[in-house]
Nucleic acid binder design. Sequence first.
DNA 1: ATGGCTTATTGTATAAGA
Length: 256
Amino acid sequence: MKLATWNVNSLNVRLPHVLDWLRDNVPDVLCLQETKQEDSKFPYAALKEAGYNAIHSGQKTYNGVAILSRHEITELTFGIANFEDEQKRVISATINGIRIVCVYIVNGQSVDSDKYDYKMRWLEVLHTWLADELKKYPKLVLLGDYNIAPEDRDCHDPAAWVGEILVSPAERAHFQKLLQLGLHDSFRLFEQAEKSFSWWDYRMMGFRRNLGMRIDHILVSDALKSACQSAHIDKSPRQLERPSDHAPVVLILDKS
DNA sequence: ATGGCTTATTGTATAAGA
């Protein structure tokens, strides 16, 4: 079973890239973030044509998450239980007996901003909710744009980023707390090239110079750890004309 | 160098992303 996550930075703009990527990679499940469109604009028909069922939770301009699947999608839920949030950042469903949770975690803007405070609250609520979800669904995968680079090796220039979002100690502590729930960073279960990143700034020729961060992740629960076969980041869509600033992150699970 | 790009908005500049 091939699972993937990709922040597309506007599905309206990126749909051709997504369709090409689905055709070339044939994932069983692809989670999307930053669709930036209302449900009424979501391209259900084009995705169905490509062989994918889809569920979406979107809004105009900002945020928006979706799960695409070649298989039946059941038990869909939107958002975090008992947490009022106007921002569409979470969508979940069960596919092939695995609980898929697709998240677009808050960016936070800067560590001294209200948005950062919201990020901290949001991560706290996510943690509490996931503790319950893991009891309900031992086989769980948490995929998405976390907006957290967990370690210095996930940042192209740790010294330059001290004091910035994505790498602050409080954000990293939240990431570690997720791992303490019994989740595993699937990318790090396998040997990876140094300076492996999933996002590169559009500016300053960030991609060509590999000035990136690894902030998109696929965490798997204890019950799925031994099923992980391989994990990688597919940089190829980042090289296309008018790309998303994020690349797809991929995990292969065996069938057991 | 507080910028550097890209996207969306009922725009002609601003906000947000990371």
